[in-house]
Design a protein around this nucleic acid. Sequence first.
DNA 1: GAGCGTTCAGGCGGTTCA
DNA 2: TGAACCGCCTGAACGCTC
Lengths: 302, 302
Amino acid sequence: MQLTLDSVACMLRAPSEEQGPVAAPLIPEGMDSREDEPRSCVVCGDRATGYNFHALTCEGCKGFFRRTVNKSTGPTCPFTGSCEVSRAQRRRCPACRLQKCLDVGMRKDMVLSPEALALRRAKQALRRAQQPLMKVRKEQNELVQTLLEAHTRYVATMFDQFVQFKTQNFLCGPLCYTVEDALHAGFQKEFIEWIFHFHGTLRQLRLQEPEYVLMAAVALFSPDRPGVTQREEVEQLQEKMALTLDSYIKEQRQQRPQKRFLYAKLLGLLTELRSINNQYWYQIQRIQGLPAMVPLLQEICS
Amino acid sequence: MQLTLDSVACMLRAPSEEQGPVAAPLIPEGMDSREDEPRSCVVCGDRATGYNFHALTCEGCKGFFRRTVNKSTGPTCPFTGSCEVSRAQRRRCPACRLQKCLDVGMRKDMVLSPEALALRRAKQALRRAQQPLMKVRKEQNELVQTLLEAHTRYVATMFDQFVQFKTQNFLCGPLCYTVEDALHAGFQKEFIEWIFHFHGTLRQLRLQEPEYVLMAAVALFSPDRPGVTQREEVEQLQEKMALTLDSYIKEQRQQRPQKRFLYAKLLGLLTELRSINNQYWYQIQRIQGLPAMVPLLQEICS
DNA sequence: GAGCGTTCAGGCGGTTCA
DNA sequence: TGAACCGCCTGAACGCTC
Ligand SMILES: [Zn+2]
Ligand SMILES: [Zn+2]
Ligand SMILES: [Zn+2]
Ligand SMILES: [Zn+2]
C-alpha cells in the first residue's frame, strides 16, 4: 500500500491551504455539529420529547399514561403480561404498556386529579372572563389620566393667575363672582339662587377629582352644544365619558359603599346644568339684547 | 368655569342598566364537587369529552360532525325533521343530528378544509420521508467524523515525526521522495511521471477533508487488496464508503455548485490509483526480483 | 423553556343495514 | 357479505402556567 498510503500521506497537505497544525480544521466542516438528541423514550424507545410525569418519554406514552392511569377499569393483558413495548408494538397491549410506564417510574400523582383539573379550568375561565374587563378598565384608567392631566394644567393655570394677580385685583373668568356682582350685571335673582343651589348640591357630593373631570367631560362633549357639526362623533365621545364615569363610580363603590346612586345623581345634575345653561343664554340675550351669536363667540363663551 | 363648562346632557341612558362586560360568576358549577363531570354533550346528552368544533360534545357527535359536515350530499330526514337526538336515538336520523349539531353552534369552519388537510398530509408525508433520510445523514456524519478523527491522528503522528526527526535526517515513509530519488531507486521514468500527474490532478480538485478521508477509505477497503479473505464484508464496507462519499458530495453541491461530476472524477482517480498500485507492484518485483510476497509482508507494505 | 392539559385528525375493530 | 357507519384510542400540534 505504499503508493496508496503514499498518496494519502502526500496529499494530506496538498489540498489543504497551508495549514500548519493539521489537527485544527476538524470542527468547522459543513455538516451539522449541533447535538442530535439521543434521548429516547424509556418506555417504548421512540424519540423522547422531554420528561413527562417524572420519566423521559415520547408524546405517545405521555398521552397514554395521562389517559389511562386514572381509569378505574384498567386494561388487561390478553397474553402472559410480558408483551414487548416498542414503538411498533406499543399499541398492541395497553396493559403491558401501562405496566412498563409504572415500572420505569412514571408517577400517577403527577397527573392532575379531577379536582385539580376542575380548579384549573375554573381559573382559566375566570382569567378569560376578566381579560376583556381588565382591558376596558385599563383603557378607562388611561382616559381618566388624560382628563386629569388636562384638568390639572387648566386649573394650575387658573390657580397661578389667581395667586399672581390677586394683589392686583385681577381675576380672570367667572370664578369668584358674588351674588351682588351677578345682580349688578342684570341677572335675575331667581337664576342666581338656582346656580348657587346647584353649586351647593354639587359640593355636597364631595366628588373625587376623577369623578369631577369625567362629569365635566360629559358636559363638554354635548352634541347639543351650539356650533357642533359632527354630532355623531361628539355623541359617541359623550357616551364613552358617561360609561367611564359609571364604571369608575361602580369601581369606587367597592371601597366606599356610602356613595349610592351617585351616578344617577350626577346625571340629574347634568340635566339641571343643561337647563341652567339654556336659562343662562336666555338671560344673556335679555341683558345684552344680542339677536344672534356668531359661532365663534358661542364657542368662546359656552 | 362652572358656567363656562356647563352644557346640558340629557342623552344618557337610564342608570338602572348595569350589565357591563362583567361576566357571570365562573365558579366550577358547585353542584358537583365530586369527580363526576357534569359535562354532557349539548347535541345528544352523552358524556362530553371536551370542546369539539366549538361545542361541548361527546366523541360520537364529534366524529359524526367531522365526517358529515363537508359532504356535498347531506342526509335527509325521512320524517318531519324534528327527530329526537339522544344517545339512544342519535343514529336513527343523521339529518336531524347534523341539524342539531349546527343549531348548538358547532362550527363547520373548524373542520380542516380539504386544502388544509392535503397540506397537513403532505407535511406528514414529507416528515415521514425525511426521517430515514435524516437518519442516514446522521449515520454518514458519524462515519465521516470517525474517519476524520482517525485521519487526524494518523496525520498528527506523521507530522510529529516529521517535525521531531527532520534535523536528524530521519524521514519515515515515502513522504517526500523526489523524482531523482525514485529514478535512482530504479523506477521507470514513465511510471514516476504517471504518479506525479495523478497527484497533480488530485490536487487540482481541492478536496475538503471529509471528501479526502472518504476517498482514502474507499481505496483502503478494496476487496482486491492482496491478502483479503472476507471479500464480501470488505466490499460492503467499500460500497458504504463510496455511497457516503457520493451523498456527501451531493449535499455539498447545494452550497458549492461548481464541483460538478466530482464523484465521477474521484471514481476515475480511484481506478487510476488501482492501476498505479498494480504497476507499482510490478516495478517492485522487477527491481527487487522477489518471486512472491508472503501475505504478511504484503499487508505491511500495501 | 419545561411540562402540564387540550384539541384536532386518523387508525381500527365493532356494528348496522342493504 | 360488504360497505358505510360508529366511537374508542392514539399521538402530533398547540396553548397555558410557572
Ligand atoms: Zn414512548
Ligand atoms: Zn400484554
Ligand atoms: Zn353527542
Ligand atoms: Zn330526522
